[in-house]
Design a protein around this nucleic acid. Structure first.
Lengths: 144, 144
DNA sequence: ACAATTTAATTCATATGTGTAATTTCTTGG
DNA sequence: CCAAGAAATTACACATATGAATTAAATTGT
Protein backbone atom coordinates (compact mmCIF):
# COMPACT_ATOMS: atom_id res chain seq x y z
CA UNK A 1 0.00 0.00 0.00
CA UNK A 2 1.65 3.10 -1.25
CA UNK A 3 -0.57 5.64 0.47
CA UNK A 4 -0.30 5.43 4.23
CA UNK A 5 -2.91 6.76 6.63
CA UNK A 6 -4.51 9.02 4.03
CA UNK A 7 -7.13 10.45 6.39
CA UNK A 8 -4.41 11.79 8.66
CA UNK A 9 -2.96 14.03 6.02
CA UNK A 10 -3.47 17.75 6.17
CA UNK A 11 -4.84 17.39 9.67
CA UNK A 12 -4.24 21.00 10.70
CA UNK A 13 -5.64 22.30 7.42
CA UNK A 14 -8.80 20.26 7.92
CA UNK A 15 -9.01 21.38 11.54
CA UNK A 16 -8.62 25.03 10.61
CA UNK A 17 -11.15 24.70 7.82
CA UNK A 18 -13.68 23.15 10.18
CA UNK A 19 -13.07 25.84 12.76
CA UNK A 20 -13.72 28.56 10.22
CA UNK A 21 -17.10 27.14 9.29
CA UNK A 22 -18.09 26.22 12.85
CA UNK A 23 -17.04 29.57 14.19
CA UNK A 24 -19.22 31.33 11.63
CA UNK A 25 -22.18 29.14 12.57
CA UNK A 26 -21.65 29.74 16.25
CA UNK A 27 -21.32 33.45 15.58
CA UNK A 28 -24.70 33.45 13.84
CA UNK A 29 -26.30 31.61 16.77
CA UNK A 30 -24.69 33.91 19.32
CA UNK A 31 -25.76 36.99 17.35
CA UNK A 32 -29.29 36.21 18.53
CA UNK A 33 -28.19 37.14 22.05
CA UNK A 34 -26.12 40.04 20.69
CA UNK A 35 -22.62 38.95 21.52
CA UNK A 36 -19.48 38.05 19.58
CA UNK A 37 -17.93 34.57 19.87
CA UNK A 38 -14.73 35.77 21.56
CA UNK A 39 -16.67 37.65 24.23
CA UNK A 40 -19.00 34.68 24.67
CA UNK A 41 -16.03 32.37 25.29
CA UNK A 42 -14.68 34.80 27.87
CA UNK A 43 -18.05 34.92 29.65
CA UNK A 44 -18.18 31.14 29.79
CA UNK A 45 -14.70 30.90 31.23
CA UNK A 46 -15.31 33.66 33.77
CA UNK A 47 -18.36 31.77 35.00
CA UNK A 48 -16.00 29.05 36.18
CA UNK A 49 -13.12 31.34 37.16
CA UNK A 50 -14.65 34.65 38.14
CA UNK A 51 -12.08 37.09 39.45
CA UNK A 52 -9.13 35.46 37.68
CA UNK A 53 -6.30 37.53 36.27
CA UNK A 54 -6.02 38.64 32.67
CA UNK A 55 -3.21 36.16 31.98
CA UNK A 56 -5.27 33.25 33.21
CA UNK A 57 -8.21 34.37 31.12
CA UNK A 58 -5.94 34.56 28.09
CA UNK A 59 -4.88 30.96 28.52
CA UNK A 60 -8.43 29.95 29.38
CA UNK A 61 -9.81 31.17 26.09
CA UNK A 62 -6.84 29.97 24.03
CA UNK A 63 -5.59 33.46 23.32
CA UNK A 64 -2.74 35.68 24.53
CA UNK A 65 -2.28 38.66 26.80
CA UNK A 66 -2.36 41.32 24.10
CA UNK A 67 -5.61 40.00 22.65
CA UNK A 68 -7.23 39.80 26.07
CA UNK A 69 -6.35 43.36 26.95
CA UNK A 70 -8.49 44.61 24.07
CA UNK A 71 -11.16 41.98 24.63
CA UNK A 72 -11.64 42.91 28.30
CA UNK A 73 -11.62 46.61 27.42
CA UNK A 74 -14.47 46.11 24.95
CA UNK A 75 -16.38 43.93 27.41
CA UNK A 76 -15.89 46.51 30.15
CA UNK A 77 -17.23 49.17 27.79
CA UNK A 78 -20.26 46.94 27.17
CA UNK A 79 -20.80 46.60 30.94
CA UNK A 80 -20.24 42.84 31.02
CA UNK A 81 -17.15 42.77 33.25
CA UNK A 82 -14.96 45.08 35.24
CA UNK A 83 -11.27 45.14 36.13
CA UNK A 84 -10.06 45.35 39.71
CA UNK A 85 -6.50 45.94 40.89
CA UNK A 86 -4.95 43.16 42.94
CA UNK A 87 -3.89 44.02 46.47
CA UNK A 88 -1.42 41.16 46.46
CA UNK A 89 0.36 42.14 43.24
CA UNK A 90 0.54 45.67 41.90
CA UNK A 91 1.09 44.43 38.33
CA UNK A 92 -1.92 42.16 38.04
CA UNK A 93 -5.60 42.89 37.61
CA UNK A 94 -8.55 40.59 38.13
CA UNK A 95 -11.65 40.40 35.94
CA UNK A 96 -15.14 40.14 37.42
CA UNK A 97 -18.53 39.48 35.85
CA UNK A 98 -21.12 42.19 36.42
CA UNK A 99 -24.77 41.27 36.97
CA UNK A 100 -25.35 42.09 33.35
CA UNK A 101 -22.43 39.84 32.43
CA UNK A 102 -23.90 36.99 34.48
CA UNK A 103 -27.22 37.36 32.71
CA UNK A 104 -25.59 37.42 29.29
CA UNK A 105 -23.58 34.35 30.21
CA UNK A 106 -26.72 32.35 30.89
CA UNK A 107 -28.09 33.25 27.49
CA UNK A 108 -24.77 32.25 25.95
CA UNK A 109 -24.80 28.91 27.76
CA UNK A 110 -28.31 28.16 26.50
CA UNK A 111 -27.32 29.02 22.95
CA UNK A 112 -24.15 26.95 23.05
CA UNK A 113 -25.89 23.99 24.64
CA UNK A 114 -28.20 23.73 21.65
CA UNK A 115 -25.31 24.26 19.28
CA UNK A 116 -23.24 21.54 20.95
CA UNK A 117 -26.11 19.11 20.73
CA UNK A 118 -26.37 19.55 16.98
CA UNK A 119 -22.63 19.12 16.71
CA UNK A 120 -22.43 15.87 18.65
CA UNK A 121 -25.67 14.17 17.77
CA UNK A 122 -24.19 12.06 14.97
CA UNK A 123 -21.56 10.50 17.21
CA UNK A 124 -21.53 7.78 19.83
CA UNK A 125 -20.29 8.39 23.35
CA UNK A 126 -17.10 6.50 22.56
CA UNK A 127 -16.48 8.63 19.49
CA UNK A 128 -17.11 11.81 21.43
CA UNK A 129 -14.58 10.65 24.01
CA UNK A 130 -11.98 10.33 21.27
CA UNK A 131 -12.82 13.75 19.85
CA UNK A 132 -12.72 15.33 23.28
CA UNK A 133 -9.39 13.69 24.00
CA UNK A 134 -7.97 15.02 20.75
CA UNK A 135 -9.14 18.55 21.48
CA UNK A 136 -7.84 18.44 25.03
CA UNK A 137 -4.42 17.15 24.03
CA UNK A 138 -4.22 19.75 21.29
CA UNK A 139 -4.73 22.47 23.87
CA UNK A 140 -1.76 21.27 25.86
CA UNK A 141 0.79 20.43 23.18
CA UNK A 142 2.65 23.57 24.05
CA UNK A 143 0.46 25.79 26.13
CA UNK A 144 3.15 28.35 26.73
CA UNK B 1 -26.50 8.84 36.96
CA UNK B 2 -27.21 12.49 37.34
CA UNK B 3 -24.54 13.79 35.02
CA UNK B 4 -25.13 12.69 31.43
CA UNK B 5 -22.40 12.60 28.80
CA UNK B 6 -20.15 14.99 30.68
CA UNK B 7 -17.39 14.97 28.10
CA UNK B 8 -19.78 16.28 25.47
CA UNK B 9 -20.50 19.46 27.33
CA UNK B 10 -19.11 22.75 26.16
CA UNK B 11 -18.01 21.08 22.92
CA UNK B 12 -17.71 24.28 20.90
CA UNK B 13 -15.88 26.05 23.73
CA UNK B 14 -13.38 23.19 23.94
CA UNK B 15 -13.02 23.16 20.16
CA UNK B 16 -12.43 26.90 20.00
CA UNK B 17 -9.95 26.72 22.87
CA UNK B 18 -8.02 23.95 21.13
CA UNK B 19 -8.01 25.88 17.87
CA UNK B 20 -6.59 28.95 19.58
CA UNK B 21 -3.65 27.03 20.99
CA UNK B 22 -3.08 24.92 17.89
CA UNK B 23 -3.26 27.92 15.62
CA UNK B 24 -0.62 29.68 17.66
CA UNK B 25 1.64 26.63 17.51
CA UNK B 26 1.14 26.30 13.77
CA UNK B 27 1.81 30.00 13.37
CA UNK B 28 5.13 29.60 15.18
CA UNK B 29 6.10 26.67 12.95
CA UNK B 30 5.06 28.52 9.79
CA UNK B 31 6.97 31.62 10.86
CA UNK B 32 10.13 29.65 10.07
CA UNK B 33 9.17 29.83 6.40
CA UNK B 34 7.98 33.41 6.83
CA UNK B 35 4.28 33.10 6.18
CA UNK B 36 1.09 33.62 8.16
CA UNK B 37 -1.31 30.71 8.80
CA UNK B 38 -4.15 32.16 6.70
CA UNK B 39 -1.89 32.66 3.70
CA UNK B 40 -0.41 29.21 4.22
CA UNK B 41 -3.90 27.64 4.15
CA UNK B 42 -4.66 29.53 0.94
CA UNK B 43 -1.44 28.29 -0.67
CA UNK B 44 -2.28 24.70 0.28
CA UNK B 45 -5.76 24.97 -1.19
CA UNK B 46 -4.54 26.65 -4.37
CA UNK B 47 -2.12 23.80 -4.88
CA UNK B 48 -5.12 21.54 -5.36
CA UNK B 49 -7.37 24.10 -7.06
CA UNK B 50 -5.08 26.50 -8.88
CA UNK B 51 -6.98 29.06 -10.93
CA UNK B 52 -10.19 28.81 -8.90
CA UNK B 53 -12.36 31.83 -8.26
CA UNK B 54 -12.23 33.93 -5.10
CA UNK B 55 -15.56 32.54 -3.89
CA UNK B 56 -14.35 28.96 -4.15
CA UNK B 57 -11.14 29.84 -2.34
CA UNK B 58 -13.19 31.45 0.43
CA UNK B 59 -15.14 28.25 1.00
CA UNK B 60 -11.99 26.19 0.59
CA UNK B 61 -10.23 27.90 3.46
CA UNK B 62 -13.34 28.11 5.67
CA UNK B 63 -13.63 31.85 5.33
CA UNK B 64 -15.87 34.27 3.43
CA UNK B 65 -15.64 36.43 0.34
CA UNK B 66 -14.84 39.68 2.10
CA UNK B 67 -11.99 38.11 4.06
CA UNK B 68 -10.56 36.51 0.94
CA UNK B 69 -10.48 39.79 -0.97
CA UNK B 70 -8.04 41.22 1.56
CA UNK B 71 -6.13 37.95 1.87
CA UNK B 72 -5.55 37.66 -1.88
CA UNK B 73 -4.62 41.34 -2.07
CA UNK B 74 -1.91 40.84 0.57
CA UNK B 75 -0.70 37.66 -1.10
CA UNK B 76 -0.61 39.42 -4.45
CA UNK B 77 1.44 42.19 -2.88
CA UNK B 78 3.81 39.53 -1.54
CA UNK B 79 4.16 38.03 -5.02
CA UNK B 80 2.65 34.65 -4.09
CA UNK B 81 -0.42 34.75 -6.34
CA UNK B 82 -2.01 36.90 -9.00
CA UNK B 83 -5.58 37.62 -10.02
CA UNK B 84 -6.78 37.11 -13.58
CA UNK B 85 -10.08 38.25 -15.06
CA UNK B 86 -12.37 35.51 -16.34
CA UNK B 87 -13.23 35.60 -20.01
CA UNK B 88 -16.37 33.60 -19.36
CA UNK B 89 -17.81 35.86 -16.65
CA UNK B 90 -16.99 39.53 -16.28
CA UNK B 91 -17.82 39.47 -12.59
CA UNK B 92 -15.44 36.72 -11.50
CA UNK B 93 -11.68 36.57 -11.11
CA UNK B 94 -9.44 33.55 -10.81
CA UNK B 95 -6.43 33.20 -8.51
CA UNK B 96 -3.17 31.66 -9.70
CA UNK B 97 -0.01 30.64 -7.85
CA UNK B 98 3.17 32.32 -9.04
CA UNK B 99 6.44 30.39 -9.16
CA UNK B 100 7.32 32.03 -5.88
CA UNK B 101 3.97 30.93 -4.50
CA UNK B 102 4.58 27.36 -5.62
CA UNK B 103 7.96 27.36 -3.90
CA UNK B 104 6.50 28.77 -0.71
CA UNK B 105 3.73 26.19 -0.82
CA UNK B 106 6.23 23.34 -0.79
CA UNK B 107 7.89 24.77 2.30
CA UNK B 108 4.48 25.13 3.91
CA UNK B 109 3.58 21.52 3.10
CA UNK B 110 6.81 20.27 4.67
CA UNK B 111 6.20 22.31 7.80
CA UNK B 112 2.60 21.19 8.14
CA UNK B 113 3.46 17.57 7.52
CA UNK B 114 5.73 17.55 10.55
CA UNK B 115 3.15 19.45 12.56
CA UNK B 116 0.39 17.01 11.64
CA UNK B 117 2.55 14.08 12.63
CA UNK B 118 3.05 15.47 16.12
CA UNK B 119 -0.68 16.09 16.37
CA UNK B 120 -1.75 12.62 15.38
CA UNK B 121 0.98 10.44 16.83
CA UNK B 122 -0.90 9.66 20.04
CA UNK B 123 -3.94 8.27 18.24
CA UNK B 124 -4.76 5.03 16.49
CA UNK B 125 -5.94 4.93 12.89
CA UNK B 126 -9.49 4.25 14.06
CA UNK B 127 -9.41 7.23 16.40
CA UNK B 128 -8.06 9.47 13.66
CA UNK B 129 -10.89 8.33 11.42
CA UNK B 130 -13.38 9.47 14.04
CA UNK B 131 -11.63 12.82 14.47
CA UNK B 132 -11.43 13.34 10.74
CA UNK B 133 -15.12 12.48 10.38
CA UNK B 134 -16.02 15.00 13.07
CA UNK B 135 -14.00 17.74 11.42
CA UNK B 136 -15.40 16.98 7.99
CA UNK B 137 -19.01 16.95 9.19
CA UNK B 138 -18.44 20.19 11.07
CA UNK B 139 -17.34 21.82 7.84
CA UNK B 140 -20.59 20.92 6.16
CA UNK B 141 -23.18 21.60 8.85
CA UNK B 142 -24.07 24.79 7.06
CA UNK B 143 -21.36 25.73 4.65
CA UNK B 144 -22.94 28.90 3.44
C1' DA C 1 20.31 47.32 49.43
C1' DC C 2 20.82 47.02 44.58
C1' DA C 3 21.33 45.54 39.87
C1' DA C 4 19.53 42.02 36.75
C1' DT C 5 15.83 39.29 35.67
C1' DT C 6 11.17 38.06 35.35
C1' DT C 7 6.31 38.84 35.07
C1' DA C 8 1.60 41.33 34.16
C1' DA C 9 -0.50 44.32 31.56
C1' DT C 10 -0.50 47.50 27.93
C1' DT C 11 0.50 49.75 23.39
C1' DC C 12 1.51 49.53 18.55
C1' DA C 13 1.57 47.92 13.77
C1' DT C 14 -0.25 44.65 11.09
C1' DA C 15 -3.04 40.57 9.57
C1' DT C 16 -7.33 38.45 9.72
C1' DG C 17 -12.48 37.63 9.99
C1' DT C 18 -17.43 39.34 9.87
C1' DG C 19 -21.66 41.74 8.42
C1' DT C 20 -23.49 45.22 5.53
C1' DA C 21 -23.62 48.00 1.68
C1' DA C 22 -22.06 49.35 -2.92
C1' DT C 23 -20.44 48.16 -7.70
C1' DT C 24 -20.27 45.74 -11.69
C1' DT C 25 -21.82 42.18 -14.48
C1' DC C 26 -24.71 38.35 -15.77
C1' DT C 27 -29.40 36.28 -16.30
C1' DT C 28 -34.19 36.11 -16.84
C1' DG C 29 -39.13 37.27 -17.39
C1' DG C 30 -42.03 40.13 -19.98
C1' DC D 1 -34.80 45.19 -25.67
C1' DC D 2 -35.69 46.40 -20.74
C1' DA D 3 -36.45 46.11 -15.89
C1' DA D 4 -35.80 43.12 -11.96
C1' DG D 5 -33.18 40.02 -9.60
C1' DA D 6 -29.05 37.24 -8.73
C1' DA D 7 -24.08 36.66 -8.43
C1' DA D 8 -18.91 37.95 -7.78
C1' DT D 9 -16.17 41.10 -6.04
C1' DT D 10 -14.98 45.02 -3.48
C1' DA D 11 -15.39 48.78 0.18
C1' DC D 12 -16.08 49.89 4.82
C1' DA D 13 -16.42 49.70 9.83
C1' DC D 14 -15.34 47.06 13.41
C1' DA D 15 -13.78 42.96 16.38
C1' DT D 16 -10.13 39.97 17.00
C1' DA D 17 -5.29 37.85 17.02
C1' DT D 18 -0.22 38.09 16.89
C1' DG D 19 4.63 39.58 17.80
C1' DA D 20 7.52 43.20 19.42
C1' DA D 21 8.43 46.83 22.36
C1' DT D 22 7.08 49.42 26.69
C1' DT D 23 5.95 50.22 31.48
C1' DA D 24 5.47 49.05 36.13
C1' DA D 25 6.05 45.91 39.80
C1' DA D 26 7.83 41.77 41.97
C1' DT D 27 11.70 38.50 42.52
C1' DT D 28 16.31 36.91 42.63
C1' DG D 29 21.25 36.75 43.15
C1' DT D 30 24.95 38.85 45.24
Amino acid sequence: MAIARPTHRRLFAVFDHAHGHLSRRAGAALAQVEIKPAQAMALVYLGYHNGCQLSELADGVGSNNAAVTGLVTRMEKAGLVRRRALQSDGRGKSVHLTNQGLLKREQVMDTLRKFDEKLSKNFTDAEMDTIYKFLTISSHLGSK
